[in-house]
């Protein structure tokens, strides 16, 4: 790895976020540590209610407060704690430095504005470009996202575009100010597989070209397998395992990661029963005590129900939070 790519652009330390009050208080994020280096794609994998979207929304500064409360934690962007920023400073960072791509492109594009205007608005707002400059730049960016510098696209309304094209436009808007951090929240979940592949390829290519760090939020292990450099697995508001792509996919350490990988069906497993994780995904109001995974974990023992395991180094760059890492895997 080159020296520039080891530079941390995002570092989240001990982030704690809760929602609501009284008996309905839910600790959605419980002590998340995470970092993204320049030019790296870090995937945050988790199921619904695991806190992955809350974490990313918080980095973006778009968390509605109330009901959300940031109880503790620091989020460093280029070594500055952005949680201490004023709203004005946050607004300037948003879109300019940290950009976001969402799951449903149709929902986040203004249906009443032409695509070109939506891109140019960003350029004028953040980079102070004039109309002419902005138009030239917008065309360049459309070219970059594979919409071929087509003036017709620039003049189209969102409803005239297909789902894949809308997502490309969303990406164009996100990257138009050369952000150094891109947060992609399930950007391909709503797309068909063939389009998904194209969008993933595009994201990979842009990352290379613009040297952005990408925080990629997903529930889809197969997609993460194809694109990530590093992976963090989040369960019940806590990161349970983090490591390089090879470490996570080849030798998963945490029982949750291991079971999750084994439970994904594919043609190679034909005729065999799928490994399942018993029980249900806990919701934030009722996270179990101790290690939150213990009610579903085949390795769980007494101390798992009482104490919360901390993240500890396993091997290489990998860390995991589990008491039973040394234990023989029971089938």
């Amino acid at each position: 790895m080159s020296s520039s790519s080891s530079e941390q652009i995002l570092k989240i330390e001990n982030l704690n976020i809760s929602f609501g009050e009284g008996e309905h208080r839910a600790k959605a994020v419980r002590g998340v540590d995470l970092d993204v280096r320049r030019g790296e794609l870090h995937a945050l994998v988790g199921e619904s209610g695991s806190g992955k979207t809350v974490t990313s929304t918080c980095v973006m500064g778009l968390l509605p407060m109330p009901p959300a409360v940031i109880e503790d934690g620091r989020i460093y962007y280029n070594n500055e704690d952005i949680l201490k920023y004023t709203e004005e400073q946050r607004r300037k960072t948003r879109g300019r430095e940290i950009a976001m791509v969402f799951q449903e492109p149709g929902k986040y594009l203004n249906p009443a504005l032409r695509v070109g205007e939506q891109i140019m608005e960003m350029l004028r707002l953040h980079l102070g470009m004039s109309g002419k400059e902005a138009e030239v730049r917008a065309l360049e960016i459309l070219e970059m996202v594979g919409l071929g510098g087509n003036r017709r696209v620039l003049k189209s309304f969102p409803h005239e575009l297909s789902g894949g094209m809308k997502q490309r436009v969303m990406i164009a808007i996100a990257i138009c100010c050369n952000p150094s951090l891109l947060i992609a929240d399930e950007p391909t979940t709503a797309l068909d597989v063939t389009l998904q592949l194209q969008i993933l390829k595009l994201i990979m290519q842009l990352r290379h070209k613009l040297d952005m760090g990408i925080l990629f939020i997903s529930h889809d292990l197969a997609v993460v397998h194809d694109i990530s450099d590093r992976v963090s697995v989040i369960y019940a508001g806590k990161i349970v395992e983090t490591g390089s792509r090879e470490e996570i996919f080849n030798t998963p350490a945490h029982p949750y990661t291991k079971l999750l990988l084994e439970s994904v069906p594919d043609a190679a497993k034909r005729g065999k029963k799928l490994t399942t994780i018993s029980g249900r995904v806990p919701d934030a109001e009722h996270f179990p005590s101790g290690c939150a995974f213990h009610p579903r974990c085949p390795l769980a023992e007494d101390k798992c129900t009482k104490n919360q395991p901390e993240m500890a180094a396993v091997d290489g760059s990998r860390k995991a939070a589990c008491f039973c890492l040394d234990k023989e895997w029971r089938k």
Partner: peptide
């Protein structure tokens, strides 16, 4: 062929690979 080669989870996406521009994306829907 195209559908089955798009199945995720088999190969890592090679970022050097050229951005293949597909026909159905070129035209409007």
């Amino acid at each position: 062929m195209k559908l089955f080669s798009s199945i995720p989870g088999i190969n890592r996406i090679d970022e050097e690979q050229d951005l293949v521009f597909h026909v159905e994306e070129a035209g409007y829907s």
